[in-house]
Nucleic acid binder design. Sequence first.
DNA 1: GTATGTGCAAAGACTTTGCTTTGGA
DNA 2: TCCAAAGCAAAGTCTTTGCACATAC
Lengths: 120, 120
Amino acid sequence: MTDQRKAILKVLEESEDHPSVETLCDRARQADASISIATVYRTLGLLSELGLVLKHDFKDTSARFEVDHGHHHHLVDTESGEVVEFENDALEALMHKICADLGYEMVDHTFELFGRKIKK
Amino acid sequence: MTDQRKAILKVLEESEDHPSVETLCDRARQADASISIATVYRTLGLLSELGLVLKHDFKDTSARFEVDHGHHHHLVDTESGEVVEFENDALEALMHKICADLGYEMVDHTFELFGRKIKK
DNA sequence: GTATGTGCAAAGACTTTGCTTTGGA
DNA sequence: TCCAAAGCAAAGTCTTTGCACATAC
């Protein structure tokens, strides 16, 4: 457990948004200016494999990350880029059921919604 | 409508799997050996925008494509890489409902399941 | 003291683009 | 003929890696 990893973890935990590798690196550099992007990639790789961190594809240019604090999903506002988080137990259950019905045990999934705000 | 586009479309329509750009290019070249990878990318970009073709991320190295023939989803066998297609109306409905409840109109989504075959 | 981690820069993988030539309508 | 499309190769992005140096334990 190195200082760099501590800094990256801390930034991840404190982030309320879904930072890209680049953003994460910038933030971590405020604690330790020497942190390189390579280390950020390597650390995120580790954390992802351990299941502590989730990687998302918001159809942005690059991958986005967040600590895995319980099951929730994302709706991306296609106009503003804003990300809305939500939980939905029925969805979770349905995903597991679909896998089971097909004879599989679910080990992972991707799921993001993209929507346009409805004007009142 | 050029010969190259015709060839790419034909290959896409005849593909029962979910080819990558590279694979698609190889297949299209059997009809017209001069087709370049750039044309395949450009054509897929067009077709995607028109909504005729869907682009998926199966956590492979590169993007995978298929013609949009009705709503169905994918379960990727994490051991074999095999892709199982399935339909599920409840899932469709739930996605739309989630968006609506959050005040959004759904314009797109990503959804793939990753699972391990259950041994009997 | 030794295995592991880091920084840097170079290499990789996938995708996009500039420019010239080609070809469809 | 004329404009859109194709081919080629170069450039762009994001990500990974080799290697020498630094550091945790």
